[in-house]
Every structure is written in C-alpha cells, then in structure tokens.
Amino acid sequence: MIPASFEYAVARDVADAIQLLGSSGGEGKVLAGGQSLIPLMKFRLAQPGLLVDINRVKGLSDIRENGELRIGALVREADLDMNAIVRERYPILVDTTRVIADPLVRNMATIGGNLAHADPANDHPATMLALRASVVARGPKGERVIPIDEFFVDTFTTVLAPDEILTEIRIPKRPAGGGGAYLKLERKVGDFAIAGVAAMVVMDEKGRIAAASIGVTNAGPTAIRARKAEDILRGQSPDDKTIAAAAAAAAGESKPWSDLRGPAEYKLDVIRVLTQRAIRKAVARATGGK
C-alpha cells in the first residue's frame, strides 16, 4: 500500500502552518502523529495535496497545570500516560490514553490528532466531553477557545476551518470530590472500540453526586454527551438503582451502527454496562478509592 504523491512542508511555527494550510486551496492537511492519516493515505482514500508537518513546531508539546490543565495538541499519547501531573490527578486521562491503539502507535499519536480526526471510535472525544474540556484553535484571524460540546460536527468533521490548527486542550482543574474513569470494550488490543464510556462525577460532603458528566465513544457519527444520564445522576446518591437508570438513559441517547464490531442493539447494551461500571469507578475515585 503506497500513498499517492503529495507536497510536503515543515511548519516552523504555528503561524507558518496556518499560512501553509491557507495557501493549499483546501487541499492541505496537518501531519501530527499521522497514525490515522497515513494508513488512510496508503489506502489512497485520503489524498491530500499538501501535508503540513507540525511536528517541529515548538510549544505544542507541553503539559502544564495552572488553574486548569493545559495539554499541548502535539503531546504524544505515551507522554500523556507518563506525565506525573496526569498520573496523579487525572486518572481518567490515563485510562483513556492507555487503551488507544497499541503502545507503538501511542509513541507517535498525539492527543490533538485524536480529537481533530473526529473518528467516533476515537477515545479522547468522549473523555473530553466528560471533562468539559475546551480546545484552542488558531487560524488567520487569531485564536479562539471552543468548548468541546461545540467541537465535533460529524464523522471526521469538526468546527475547525481548513486553515485552523488545534493547539491546546484545556481541562478544568479537578474539583474537590471529583473523580472520573474511562472504560472501553474492544475485541483485541489495537481494534476500534465496540463502545467506550467516560464518566466524571463530583461528590458532595453528603455522598451525593453534585455534578456528573458522561461521554460516549462510538455512539453515532460523533462521540456524544449523555445529558439525560447526567440529569438522572445529579443530586442523587450513587446507589444501584440510580446508576442503572443513568446507564439506561446513556444507552437511550446513543445511536450506534451495526458493523463488524457488533450489532447496534448489542452496542447499546455495552454502553449501558460500561456506563454503570464507569460511574462506579468514578465515584470510587472521587471518594478516595482507586
């Protein structure tokens, strides 16, 4: 499998990348980790006219916590996994990054690419929905901050303009009493998800769920937020009945397709089951358990 020819340019900085993309007449494509894009190019299903390589752009690979957690778009999955701040305070991100593809792919793949590629089977979208993250995009007109709820438009489609670049992901600081978990079901390591569920909860002093947010992988053309499930959880104690009701609601909000990874009705059940388990794990983490 051999990709078709393309022009290639190394971006010196973000401004350079934006300029290169703008000059490509809509045929340009950002090359970050390339772990989704290059296989598509080898099938010749993607034939971009210009690849703008942003891997040498400085300042996109940092992880900082300064009020909120800021993750550069070029941070590799393996580095996200190994980061001390992330390991200590954002176990849901560790859950997520560790189930993406396989360890070798994670050495190249970037968190920005995982989001910008907008494959409904990718794992970060659901987690970012649950974390109420926002993404920072820069284009010819400057920088904008996009709430994650507004970021995904459709399969492989985000609100990013062809000459806009995703530069950073911002995640609100984990609140006191907060905890989260991401669970994914896959046939084998490296396969696309059958389904995945990210759950974040904030527990109050009385042991009730003060806030909850749930993102679902492979639930339709994009990852979705299970808002009804969130509503059910809010203000309730995390008993079996409440969790079961929330999980059923999350499945009800999902619209997976039948494919090689299972019939749609099966996936709905998996979403329900994973939602229950993810909520339980999130609650356990929020209340000091592992």
């Binding site: 084998k188 390591v189 490296g190």
Partner: peptide, 16 residues
C-alpha cells in the same frame, strides 16, 4: 469482503 485487512481481521495479540 469483511475482514480484509489487519484492521478488521483480528489476529490475537499477547494480551488476548
């Protein structure tokens, strides 16, 4: 054909 590449034809890894 359904299962015509290693993306869809599932060879077990060391984990399975």
């Amino acid at each position: 054909i359904q299962g015509g590449t290693f993306m869809d034809y599932l060879l077990p890894t060391a984990m399975e």
